[in-house]
């Protein structure tokens, strides 16, 4: 009885979104894992320089961006939940909030980049900042694509309605968005918090 209440039966289990999206998301996350390891490998070769460079980053920007993306993921999860409940109005509202969080992330990242560039810190400054710009730049590209993906799903939901796009369409967009959040969750401590000893 307890086992029945705790674990879902095989037939009750279903994958959110399409398999192709999950293959893409997992492949992308494995590629990022390699980039994280590459970053840590170079850090190990010159810990002092990396730690000194890390101190030049603004921790507050990193923390606020993390919280923004966590909230965006919560909104995205609620959008999928609303779609399951056939509450299209709530779904559209949560998708808009997800995009708004994404745009806030872009604005804040813009401020952070301009602050760094005004101090003369560029990707050519040293190895740490090369990694900083490349890793955050690739992630930023993912955020921009994510805003378009969620925006496209939102427009389709508005134009063709819930039956037109279906819950799988929303789940695909939401799954991509969660990946954007996942990658930042790892990037934040790697770039901003690791200069410990």
């Amino acid at each position: 009885m307890l086992a029945q209440a705790t674990f879902l039966k095989q037939e009750q289990r279903r994958n959110p979104g399409e398999l192709g999206v999950w293959v893409f998301v997992l492949a992308d996350m494995f590629v990022f894992t390699m980039l994280f390891c590459l970053f840590l490998h170079y850090r190990n070769e010159d810990v002092f320089s990396f730690n000194e460079s890390m101190k030049k980053l603004n921790l507050h920007y990193g923390m606020i961006n993390t919280v923004i993306l966590l909230f965006s993921s919560w909104f995205a999860a609620n959008a999928a939940m609303a779609m399951h409940k056939s509450s299209l109005r709530a779904c559209k509202r949560f998708m808009l909030l997800t995009m708004l969080c994404g745009l806030s992330f872009l604005v804040l990242k813009g401020f952070e980049y301009s602050e760094k560039l005004s101090y003369g810190i560029t990707p050519y400054s040293n190895e740490f900042f090369m990694f900083y710009y490349v890793l955050t730049g690739i992630h930023l590209l993912h955020v921009i694509i994510g805003i378009f993906v969620v925006g496209f799903a939102w427009i389709r939901l508005k134009v063709v309605g819930g039956e037109g796009i279906g819950s799988v369409g929303i789940e695909n967009a939401v799954t991509y968005w969660h990946m954007v959040d996942l990658l930042w969750i790892i990037l934040f401590p790697l770039l901003y918090l690791l200069p410990l000893s």
């Binding site: 879902l8 009750q12 289990r13 279903r14 994958n15 959110p16 993921s73 919560w74 995205a76 999860a77 999928a80 789940e171 939401v174 799954t175 969660h178 959040d181």
Partner: peptide, 9 residues
């Protein structure tokens, strides 16, 4: 929880 993998295959 957010990606609903808990209840996936």
């Amino acid at each position: 929880f957010f990606m609903e993998v808990k209840s996936s295959k």
